[in-house]
Structures are given as structure tokens and as C-alpha cells.
Amino acid sequence: MLIPHHNRYAYSPIISRPDYTWPEGKRLAFHIGLNIEHFAFGTGLTHTPTVPIPAPDQRSFCWTDYGNRVGVFRLLDLFDSLGLPASHLVNTTLFEYAPEIVDSINRRGDEIIGHGRTNAERHGYMWEKDEARFIAEVRDEISEKAGQQVRGWMAPWMSVSQVTPDLLQEAGFKFVMDWPADDQPLWMKTRSGRIMSVPYPLELNDSPQMLVRHATPSDFEQMMIDQFEELLAQSDKQPLVFGLALHAMVVGQPYRLRALRRALQYISNHPQRDKVWFTRPGQIYDHCAALPDGVVTGHPAPR
């Protein structure tokens, strides 16, 4: 029976792929993706840690705003204390609302990933021309306001249309992070070439785990440690990517921050940390894009 398929990549079992290594012979690439999100007041989509109330829901707005006023800076301090690089999935409306956040990111030399204008909207419903304008607007805002040539994309709410990968590739983006199908990067087909998918987790993600599945901070701490230990062991067989998805308003809360600190200290001080490449998604892309064609699974290079 034929069923609809995206036709972006073919099935490829991880046990039958070519082997390669990360820089300096390392086997596990570790990256942090911190979501820094801005919401409209009294309209549009929002996150909420409690029962929704009719708009304007000032409680939910203030809870998300806590991440931008407090949580993000405490998280950056934590990353600094452990010497950990990070990438930041930033809504472009934050450039006007909270420019100090962008200044702090740039001082660290961290990478900004395109994350739409605001998480008050999804873009997967847009008509193609509107979506193309939307993607170009986000790209240009990051270049103008943050001074970075953005290369990676993670849509608000991981929302995509049938042509999102095509539009991103045509707008100059090099990789996406909202196709969570693998523990290795993979090349995806677009109508004008190819774009890379860099692993980013739907599971090891503080928002669905703690807001939807009601995991405790200690539960999430153990998940991070178990994920790290298992991927580290599995990386003896093939190079793997450990992505950690965080949100400033979720793990930026003090009692959750303490659990996150314990997990990151465990990972940073691990006796086998010499096998781990602490990196950012753009560096993962650069390394994989430089490998001979056919080493990274997925769509072959255009001829």
C-alpha cells in the first residue's frame, strides 16, 4: 500500500552507514539549544504552566517573560561557569524588546538559530509566497540586529509546510533542526539542492517533558544523564549527536536550574569527556558538509 511520504530523505538504518569521527577523533558531539522566546500579550499562541484563562492571560505572559528578564541570564552564567558553548533559538521580536540578550549571546561567541518572529504564531499554515517573505524577514533581521549570518533554522513549535525546506534552502539556510529523525546529521532533498538536518531532540526537551508529561526537575536531570551515558556508549559504534533542548522560561526557574546545573556538571566532568566534542550546530554542519559525499546519510550532492 502506498501512503503519503515527504520524499525529503530515504530510509537508512544507522547500523549500515559509513563510519567517521568528529574533530580530534571524538565520537559524541554535544550541543545545547536554548530557546529564547517572545510572546504577544493577550493574543496568539502561548506556553502555560497551569490551566489557561481567557485572554489577556497575564499569568502566562509573565511566566514566559520571566525567561527573558531573569532565566536566560542565569543560564548563560551557568554555561560560562562550565565553559560550555551554546546555540540560541531566538525570536526576532526580542531584538527590539530585549537587546541585552543578543549582546550577551554575541559576547559569548554563541550561534543564533533562526526561530521565527514570535512563538505567538506558527508559520506552517502560510501560503508559499507569504512563508518565503517570512523566512527572508527573519534571516535579514538576524543579520541586521544581531550581526550574524544565520545558517540554521528551528521553526516556532517545529511548524513546517510542505515547502518549508525548499524555501529555507533557497533563502540561504544550510541546516534545519526541526526534523528529529536521527542521532546523526542527514542530508535532506529540496527542489533546488539539499539541506542538512542537525539532530535536535523532541524527547530530551524540557518543555514537553516538564510542561506536558509533568516530569520533575530531578526526573529531567536523570534523563539527561542517562541519555549522555547511553549515547556515549553507543558512539563506540558510530559518531553520534547529543542535542539538549532547553527553554529560558522553563529551566530558568531556580528549582529547575539547580537540577540542570547538576546534570551539566556531571557531563562536563565526566571521566570520558575526551571522547566528547562540546560544540554548536553550525560547527556540526561545517564538519559534516566537508566530508566526502556519501559519508553522511541522505540526499546525494547535486551533480
Rank of each mutant, 00 (worst) to 15 (best):
G25R: 05
V70S: 09
R213M: 12
M249N: 08
I14N: 03
F61T: 08
D286W: 01
R8W: 15
R133C: 04
W179R: 11
N91W: 09
H214E: 10
P180Y: 12
E221A: 10
Q238H: 15
Q265I: 06
V102I: 14
L89H: 09
F39L: 13
E37V: 07
N205V: 03
V198R: 03
L232Q: 05
G44E: 04
R256I: 02
T118V: 07
D140F: 03
I142C: 01
H6A: 11
G124W: 01
M196D: 07
K26Q: 08
K275I: 01
I14V: 08
I195G: 01
F175G: 04
G114W: 06
A171H: 05
D77T: 11
A55S: 02
H88D: 07
P180I: 08
M126P: 01
I14P: 00
R258P: 00
Y200W: 07
D274I: 11
Q184M: 14
P156V: 12
A132Y: 10
V163H: 15
P217D: 04
N68P: 00
P13R: 11
Q148N: 07
T190G: 05
R133L: 08
S161W: 14
D206F: 05
P208V: 06
T43V: 12
E121P: 01
R27E: 04
H123T: 04
Q162C: 11
D178Y: 02
L75P: 01
A146L: 10
W127Q: 11
P271Y: 04
P49E: 05
P165Y: 02
N205S: 09
P281K: 11
W127Y: 12
R108G: 08
I113K: 03
S143F: 12
R303C: 06
L34M: 14
F242K: 13
F175V: 09
E128P: 03
F73H: 07
N119C: 12
D226C: 01
I142F: 06
K275T: 02
D183K: 14
G243V: 11
R151K: 12
D183F: 09
A120K: 01
C62L: 15
I105T: 05
R27T: 14
Q58S: 10
D166N: 13
V150A: 14
A146I: 10
E96T: 08
S207A: 14
V212L: 13
T93I: 11
V295Y: 05
D293S: 15
G42D: 04
L168S: 05
Y285A: 06
Y285R: 02
A132V: 05
Q209G: 02
F278Q: 12
A245H: 10
P156L: 10
P271C: 06
